[in-house]
């Protein structure tokens, strides 16, 4: 919570800015200034931001490379879709159920695998992500490989906006708390952290679970926006998509992840007719960023008021 007068002021300004963005977009949708095509991309953007910020918690802040994020998204999408479609639950409980189910999946997968290190962990999470997909393919009640068709479109701009803002605030506050410092200490030097009395396994599992839960949230929103979900949508290439955003933005920078998610969504929309070029650009981003800036474009820095004021040379 803000303490000084000045901080209060900034807090209020932030609220006003957010409310402004929200109202402006809502107005543009209501007056049909944003046609359906832009609306779809706007939805993808919000969903991508949630995915990138949540994966960044695992990959960037905790330093555990997970390649199974799409699997958790799938869990959230399926559970939420089943809730609204078969169990006639309303949307908010369905979103919550989807997120919790994904967090639970994160816990179940995290406990055994997070003992592994580095690339072994990466491969194990990739394997688990694929197993989730294959299991979904084999459940006839959710349509098997053909997936669930005809999900009601319940995801609207207010939900998308709110979910995105909540994700960012929760993860940002977590990182700035004492938990966050423990999590970052795991990334910096696991052995040293352990020596200092940090229960590294517990912090790794917790970060993994929270990240998975938000991926589930993104999945629930996705399912109720795009009418259709099928297991193939959530294969490991989807996980790589999210990884590209995190790597591009900077491993360990929330603002970086947000900017990268926005950039990648716009790029995808612009190159819609040329998927090959998009993927070639992805590949180059991964290689070049790793060779020249292994910490990502923003590194672990955040883009804040200070960055801007320094840029403009004034004092804020």
């Amino acid at each position: 919570m803000p303490s000084s007068k000045r901080q209060w002021l900034w807090f209020l300004i932030n609220i006003v800015i957010l409310a402004g963005i929200f109202t402006l977009v809502q107005y543009m949708i209501a007056t049909r200034m944003l046609n359906q095509y832009y609306q779809i991309n706007l939805a993808s953007m919000c969903i991508n931001i949630i995915l990138a910020v949540s994966l960044n918690l695992i990959n960037g802040f905790t330093g555990q490379l997970s390649l199974g994020h799409a699997g958790f998204m799938a869990v959230g999408a399926y559970v939420a879709a089943v809730c609204t479609k078969s169990m006639d639950l309303s949307f908010i409980p369905a979103i919550i159920a989807g997120s919790l189910a994904a967090a639970l999946a994160g816990l179940i997968i995290g406990v055994p695998t997070l003992r592994l290190r580095g690339d072994y962990l990466a491969i194990a999470t990739l394997g688990f992500g694929e197993i989730i997909r294959v299991i979904l393919q084999n459940i006839e009640e959710v349509g098997g490989p053909a997936g669930i068709v005809g999900i009601e479109r319940l995801t609207t701009w207010p939900y998308l906006f709110l979910a995105t803002v909540i994700t960012i605030i929760v993860i940002q506050n977590l990182i700035n708390s004492s938990y966050g410092r423990a999590i970052i200490s795991v990334r910096e030097d696991e052995v040293a952290a352990e020596m200092m009395g940090v229960n590294t396994t517990w912090y790794k599992v917790m970060a993994f679970m929270i990240g998975a839960g938000f991926a589930g949230l993104a999945g629930a929103l996705f399912a109720h926006y795009f009418y259709i979900i099928k297991p193939d949508t959530f294969n490991f290439l989807k996980s790589f998509d999210i990884l590209v955003m995190v790597v591009l933005g900077g491993l360990g920078s929330t603002t970086g992840a947000i900017l990268a998610a926005i950039f990648i969504t716009v790029l995808t929309a612009y190159l819609q007719a040329f998927p090959a070029i998009r993927m070639i650009i992805y590949a180059m981003i991964l290689i070049l960023v790793m060779i020249y800036r292994p910490q990502g474009l923003l590194g672990n820095k955040e883009l804040t008021r200070k960055t801007f004021s320094r840029f403009w040379g004034g004092s804020a």
Partner: peptide
Amino acid sequence: TDEAMNVSA
């Protein structure tokens, strides 16, 4: 399938 919907829009 999702691309088909995008294209439609």
